[in-house]
């Protein structure tokens, strides 16, 4: 004989479903993660792997048909001078942007962490949050206004009687160009602007944790400001800088909008992927190009982890 249940089974679909869930915890967890596993685990990851697999296929140069057999030919194509130049250009840009962001971010973060109080603190908070949260495209648009040949920057240089300086900078081969908005220099400035907040936040977080007496002790012990910066402040801020550089570096590597709008027309990795999968219809080469930033970031993250950058996030 089975003993009667303490509570009679309740009526109503919802209540019965809830009771069922409590009695079958494993099934319930399974149902909870089912949609995510189906969508992300199968559809998204499946498509991602399918895309990456394509990089081991090659395209027939005459018919333009993808040949579905394993080959490393497409990767070899990456090393062709024109393609390799795209990779080198993107990595060099990402490195330059990261370096410039670190140099610009440090004094701001240091001032905000050590000296800013009250109104200044508020101004710094808004000054970082506003560009961070503003629409990406609106920010790029704003720089199109700033860098245009007839725009404010040219005007400022003219007012300061420094037009010759701007012209001299634009005349530099490779980085210069007709105007700032169609030069590498312009692309570089916009990249720095867009990703700078991602550097300031972790650097400031790292600096907030440095005790002020430590710096006073350094100077009491006879360190010049330069020495205490190099031997005390910088090593303590370094995890923050590395954490910020993860953002600036990876975001620059993958971006294809900024160089398309402000730039010299020479391609970056993102643009190469875009044109290869779109107009050129060479999916294997597009896939091989996407592998490049993934591998670079994998190595970068591994290195960053060794330097303890993840504790500073």
């Amino acid at each position: 004989m089975t003993s009667p249940a303490i509570f009679a089974p309740r009526s109503g679909v919802l209540a019965r479903a809830a009771d069922w869930a409590i009695r079958h915890p494993r099934m319930f967890v399974f149902l909870m993660v089912l949609p995510i596993v189906l969508w992300l685990g199968i559809v998204y990851i499946g498509a991602l792997i399918a895309l990456l697999m394509q990089s081991f296929f090659s395209i027939d140069e005459f018919s333009g048909v993808v040949q579905h057999e394993f080959t490393l030919k497409t990767y070899a194509e990456l090393l062709r001078p024109s393609n390799f130049a795209i990779i080198a250009r993107t990595v060099a840009m990402a490195a330059a942007v990261t370096l410039a962001s670190a140099v610009l971010a440090f004094p701001m973060a240091y001032f905000a962490a050590r000296y800013a109080r009250g109104k200044w603190k508020a101004l710094f908070y808004i000054g970082v949050m506003l560009p961070l949260w503003s629409s990406y495209l609106v920010k790029v648009y704003a720089w199109k206004l700033v860098l245009a040949k007839e725009g404010i920057l040219t005007w400022i240089f003219a007012q300061l009687h420094l037009s010759w300086l701007l012209d001299a900078v634009l005349a530099i081969p490779v980085v210069g160009g007709n105007s700032l908005s169609v030069s590498y220099l312009g692309t570089f400035i916009v990249f720095v602007y867009i990703w700078l907040p991602y550097m300031i936040i972790p650097v400031q977080a790292a600096l907030e944790r440095v005790p002020a007496p430590l710096l006073e002790a350094a100077s009491d012990l006879g360190a010049t400001p330069k020495q205490s910066f190099r031997m005390v402040l910088l090593p303590l801020a370094l995890p923050g800088i590395v954490a910020g550089s993860i953002f600036t570096f990876s975001l620059t590597l993958g971006d294809y909008i900024i160089p398309q709008i402000v730039g010299s027309g020479r391609l970056f990795i993102g643009q190469a992927v875009y044109t290869q999968q779109g107009t050129a219809g060479n999916i294997p080469l597009a896939a091989a190009f996407t592998v490049v930033p993934i591998v670079i970031m994998g190595v970068y993250l591994w290195g960053a982890r060794k330097m303890g950058a993840f504790d500073a996030l």
């Binding site: 610009l104 000054g127 560009p131 609106v138 206004l145 700033v146 700078l196």
Partner: peptide
């Protein structure tokens, strides 16, 4: 730095 961040907006 603040001017750089806010002026374009």
């Amino acid at each position: 730095g603040l001017i750089f961040l806010l002026a374009p907006i």
